[in-house]
Amino acid sequence: MQEEKEKYRRLAALLEKYHGKAGELINVLHKAQLIFGYLPQKVQICVADALGVPISEVYGVVTFYSLFNTEPRGKYRISVCLGTACYVKGAGSIMEALKENLKVDEGGTTKDGLFTLESARCVGACGLAPVVTINGNVHGRMTADDIPELLERYRKEAKE
């Protein structure tokens, strides 16, 4: 609760700087997402109100860009590259293995809040295909069999 209050306090400080600046919508949403980890509806309303942009338009922008999330993200964001190179080298089966292990669909977050599963279109490391990134760390030349061990490592790290 206290933590949540602090986040809204930071949001208010942010919005003060951008009052009435409708042209800064994407920038402000991005900064708001850095504070909250995602863009809850209330935060979207706060942004709309401060910038003077209709809420329908804010929602349109939030849902258009894959950069923005409207659901809380997990501690670790797993991104499976489904670009051409990774795909032909078996990224599909890696994605399936992750879905099975985590029991979530693409875009979903595990019940324990640890992992969010996403896909990407080429991360620019085709030489390492197929590639999985976790919170920006690149794991190359993956196979479906590597998945349980990889996830275990992060689960352990989270406990520590």
């Binding site: 979207q44 209709p54 809420i55 329908s56 929602y59 349109g60 849902t63 258009f64």
Partner: peptide, 26 residues
């Protein structure tokens, strides 16, 4: 009144009120 907006993208794109709510709720 700004009820509608184009939301989502590509094949999923559609016209909708904010948050995919009913007209009755906006």
């Amino acid at each position: 009144a700004f009820v509608y907006s184009a939301v989502h993208r590509g094949f999923d794109s559609m016209v909708s009120p904010a948050f995919g709510l009913s007209l009755d709720d906006v």
